[in-house]
């Protein structure tokens, strides 16, 4: 039998980065369980538009867990109660009739609110621009096949590369640290021969950018890996620390 639920939505409204912000409450009636969380917000917004009210602003794009846009803090968890899933990948059947669902934006100094639930995550782009790339042409697919890479290294690099840059790690962190993201982006290249030669420079440049942008100092609380929709592991942070310390000792 299909689950159909009615519930209360408490949604954060904020007119701009400087606005104080407040919660608005909405009653949602008879929402089918197989509605995705974002579709449910679409339904809400259609209601608001038809009533002549301003719709709720929230970020989204792919709606299939690969772009990292859907940055919502739902009932005390980034990307909601599910583990290993983004906001766009959770469905209303996870909630119960009569629930109150609280939706907030990422709250961290590094990600200022643009409007309502949408935050400015361009700090991540700046960190990537500081060194999250390989600066030589590494050839085409057949060239890649000519270089043998141990399966374990390839697997770890792929796991790190699954990071979608959503910012949940920062949102979950009591220190506002972006270490899980930066470490994933450093690891995905450092583990492979094409990226290894620039590993030290990359680690230094990306970390310096992260510090400059005002993200916090990682104290290893592990909230990031618990909330990461891609299950990126803090073993990447250990690798970043290692690369960084080695590079600094060599200087």
């Amino acid at each position: 039998m299909e689950k159909i639920i009615s519930f209360t939505l408490k949604i954060w409204r904020q007119n701009g980065p400087k606005d104080k912000g407040h919660f608005d409450t909405f009653q949602m009636k008879d929402i089918p369980g197989d509605t995705s969380f974002l579709e449910m917000l679409d339904i809400l917004n259609e209601q608001l538009v038809s009533e002549g009210k301003e719709p709720v602003v929230f970020d989204h794009d792919c709606r299939e867990g690969i772009c990292g846009m859907c940055s919502l803090y739902i009932n005390g968890h980034p990307h909601g109660p599910a583990t290993g899933a983004t906001t766009c990948q959770i469905y209303m059947r996870r909630f119960n009739d009569g629930d109150t669902i609280t939706v907030e934006p990422w709250r961290s100094a590094g990600f200022p609110v643009i409007k309502d639930l949408m935050v400015d995550r361009s700090a991540y782009d700046k960190i990537m621009q500081a060194g999250g790339y390989v600066s030589v042409n590494t050839g085409a697919a057949q060239d890649a096949n000519a270089i043998l890479i141990p399966k374990t290294a390839a697997d770890e690099a792929m796991d790190a590369a699954s990071c979608i840059g959503c910012g949940a790690c920062v949102a979950a962190c009591k220190n506002g640290s972006a270490m899980l993201f930066v470490s994933a982006k450093v690891s995905q290249l450092a583990l492979l021969p094409q990226g290894k030669s620039e590993a030290a420079r990359r680690a230094k440049a990306m970390l310096a950018k992260m510090d400059e942008l005002g993200f916090g100092n990682c104290t290893n609380t592990r909230a990031c890996e618990a909330e990461c929709p891609k299950n990126v592991s803090i073993s990447n942070i250990a690798r970043l620390n290692r690369e960084f310390i080695k590079a600094k000792l060599k200087d």
């Binding site: 408490k10 954060w12 912000g21 919660f23 803090y73 009932n75 005390g76 968890h77 609280t102 907030e104 709250r107 961290s108 100094a109 590094g110 979950a172 962190c173 009591k174 220190n175 506002g176 640290s177 005002g214 993200f215 916090g216 100092n217 104290t219 290893n220 609380t221 592990r222 909230a223 890996e225 618990a226 909330e227």
Partner: peptide
């Protein structure tokens, strides 16, 4: 520094994931 990076806004609802040790947040 970390309090500054975290910013002044606090979540209205927040839940500690199971794998997070209490000690790690209260050093």
């Amino acid at each position: 520094l970390n309090r500054k990076a975290r910013g002044s806004e606090r979540y209205a609802v927040s839940q500690k994931p199971k794998s997070v040790e209490w000690a790690s947040q209260n050093m």
